[in-house]
Design a protein around this nucleic acid. Structure first.
Lengths: 196, 196
DNA sequence: GTCTATAGTTCGATAGAC
DNA sequence: GTCTATCGAACTATAGAC
């Protein structure tokens, strides 16, 4: 029975603290103490605080990308409406199953050090491109500029749930349904209006 | 010709820095230097860094509340769909016209010191209640639990624009239209489904 | 692989001169 | 109302013992 790697345990502790009190407010002493070692020892595993941050953010985005691809693979949906719905559920499930890692992209990425941000941008672009392609396929008659807006608004709606979703008081599936209905009905209605 | 009050100038500088680099990363020395004074002098105007933060957040939320009420007063819309659209535009306009103040509620409020958060909660609740009442009036046949989800998703979609909206490449009105269509069409479609 | 000890910085806040 | 000077605390990161 393998023990969890120290590097992984440090990343878990760091992710938890980053997302609960913020990056700047989280000290290496605090991270280290949460895994039972001293601050100086952290430097055996990581070169800097920024490296921990970068690794955590990369891991978070990889989870989202893997989640998207898993939906593609498992899906046997017939309609685009259904495919979209599955991806919305998938996004929300991966997001909330790994909140400490994934929520940082919503909450703190914006003020991350430039060097950290630079290393993350390609991976984030990759995920965004997957969604753009999905929406273009689902709404072939919607102008590209509007697809952009739709994707950003959809991300905003889904990701805001990190602040308010409480697993004890509702299901992710219910939220996914409401959101999918909104964006699907709104976009198809607009398409019909333009077609007239 | 009255000069801008020093307190106001400090708040402007602080809000700008808080929103661009984050609260913890912003030093009093930096704020002070941006208005041409020294860090020690800030304490003549404010009791602490937290007090500046609280005042900025309160001012930001007051702007949103005033904006909502201004829409109510000016509105001569006939349909609920139109009233909702006006409020979406209003929210987005006030949000983006005062980004340094208002965006902090989206970006940093979550990790604000407990004492700061406590002083803000009533004011934020007030604004949220206005929107809940609006949505309940607009969608009288939608269950209350779903109104909650709709409001949170709508806020998420609207507020995410602080990260991506570029006044040079699109209009707030266009975004407001897309969003209003989405939430209106989705919610009304769901109502009809339930009614059947 | 973890420890102690500490260098070197920066921070919020205070005191007192002007 | 702003200044200088500084206190005490906290931080990242390094060096070297074990």
């Amino acid at each position: 029975m393998a023990v969890v790697a120290p590097k992984q345990r440090l990343m878990d502790a760091a992710a938890e603290l980053f997302s609960s009190i913020g990056y700047a407010e989280t000290s290496l002493r605090h991270i280290a103490s949460n895994v039972g070692i001293k601050a100086g020892s952290v430097y055996y595993h990581f070169e800097s605080k920024d490296e921990i941050y970068t690794d955590v953010l990369l891991a978070g985005m990889d989870l989202m990308i893997d989640g998207f691809q898993a939906v593609e693979t498992d899906s046997n949906s017939t309609s685009m409406r259904e495919t979209l719905a599955e991806h919305v559920v998938g996004h929300l499930k991966v997001l909330h199953a790994n909140l400490a890692y994934t929520s940082l992209h919503v909450t703190t990425f914006r003020t991350a050090p430039a060097a950290v941000r630079r290393q993350l941008v390609p991976r984030r672009d990759e995920y965004e491109a997957m969604w753009t392609a999905l929406l273009r396929a689902a709404l072939p008659n919607t102008p590209v500029s509007e697809i952009s807006i739709l994707r950003l608004a959809l991300f905003g709606a889904m990701n805001s749930s990190i602040d308010w979703f409480d697993a004890g008081r509702g299901s992710l599936e219910e939220f996914a349904e409401v959101i999918t209905d909104a964006f699907w009905a709104g976009a198809t209605e607009r398409q019909q209006r333009v077609a007239q």
